[in-house]
Amino acid sequence: MPTNTSRRGLLFGAAALSGGALLAGCTSNESKDEDTGGNEQQVADDKPGKKVTIGFAGPQADHGWLNAINDNAKERAKKYADVTLESTEGSNDTAAQIGQVETLINKKVDVLVILPADGKALTQVGLKAMKAGIPVVNLDRVFASPQAYRCWIGGDNYGMGLSAGQYIGEKLKDKKNARVVELAGLDNLELTKQRSKGFDDALKNYPNIKKVARQAADFTVESGQQKMSQLLQAQKNFDALWNHDDDQGVGALRAIKQAGRDDFLMVGGAGALSAFQAIKADDGVLKATVLYPPTMAASAIDLARALGQGKGVSGMAEFEIPSFVTCYSAVVDKDNVEQYMPTGFK
């Protein structure tokens, strides 16, 4: 996979890893369990505790979602009086990021949160941190070895496609010979294949629906506009569009407006603020978007803090945090868009 400085080098092949669910907004739960002989489970909460220095090595903010990852991590760290965040300058260059992580290891931070520019290339430095006794929270793009991290948290690419397909399926289930098209991302990325597979699997439950066209774009506004124009020219009649990415969706919407088309519904992906605003306005084809939430970076800070303090997660019986946390790909439409509006990225 290329490791250039565009988003394509940072969109992730780690799809739906099964695992525990992180419960946000943890509260104190240090009561004694009579059935376990009075053992106390220490869980992370908002009250100041043991001081923890978290090293954060994130991406270069050259895309809305990536910028939101960095912002979510930094804002979450500010929430805790007992957390010091050592943040590197974001980089999509693997050699530079390896050097940044090694600097954090040499500083002897308590925990590391790493969104690698290239999961395979940074595996060795993840192993180095773990061997040095510094637990690693691997954010979204997974390392090649599970020994390189203590916990993985990330998005569900297959689930994105599944949710999009189910939403469209329910909207079109009573329409005879319904036709849908797909504006995918980069086809050489595993995440794109997973999103398309989830979408196709969902549509299998709706025999009245046929996918009649698919075009791969480039996760940019320009590519979205160009590829959507091609789809519109080739397909004069369809009922729904699923677009994998809200940033390229900005361009897709431009093409749709230029073509004067309003005869289908559109579902986006990721959770951009512009998409939420369009859904709320409800005056165009965009009716929903499927989340790939950048809030996972905030949750990664929560997990890192819990690791540094030797605590578990409220709402779970285990004394330790889970090994895997897969974020749910929720559908945001006009019925719940107000709830998600604060999480939208620019």
Rank of each mutant, 00 (worst) to 15 (best):
T84F: 06
I98M: 06
I69W: 08
V101L: 03
A77T: 01
K50D: 10
F56G: 07
R76V: 00
P59N: 13
K107D: 05
G64E: 05
G64P: 08
T84K: 13
A96W: 00
T84L: 07
K74C: 09
E102T: 06
P48V: 06
I69Y: 08
D71V: 15
A73T: 10
T88W: 11
Q97L: 01
N92A: 10
K50R: 14
D62L: 12
N106W: 04
E86N: 11
W65H: 07
D110L: 00
K74F: 08
T94F: 07
L104Y: 02
A73P: 06
S87Y: 14
R76P: 00
A96T: 15
N92V: 01
A81R: 13
V101F: 01
D82E: 06
G49L: 10
T53N: 06
L66P: 04
S91H: 02
A96N: 10
N67W: 06
D82G: 08
T94Y: 08
D62K: 12
T94M: 10
T103E: 09
A68W: 02
P48K: 05
E75I: 07
N72I: 05
E89A: 14
L66R: 13
K78T: 08
G64M: 04
Q60M: 14
E86L: 08
G64Y: 00
T53M: 01
A95E: 08
K74M: 13
L104S: 04
A61M: 12
S87K: 14
N106Q: 13
A81H: 10
N106K: 11
A81N: 14
Q60H: 11
D110I: 01
V52W: 00
A81L: 12
K78D: 11
V83E: 05
V109I: 03
E102V: 04
R76N: 06
S91D: 01
I54G: 00
A61K: 11
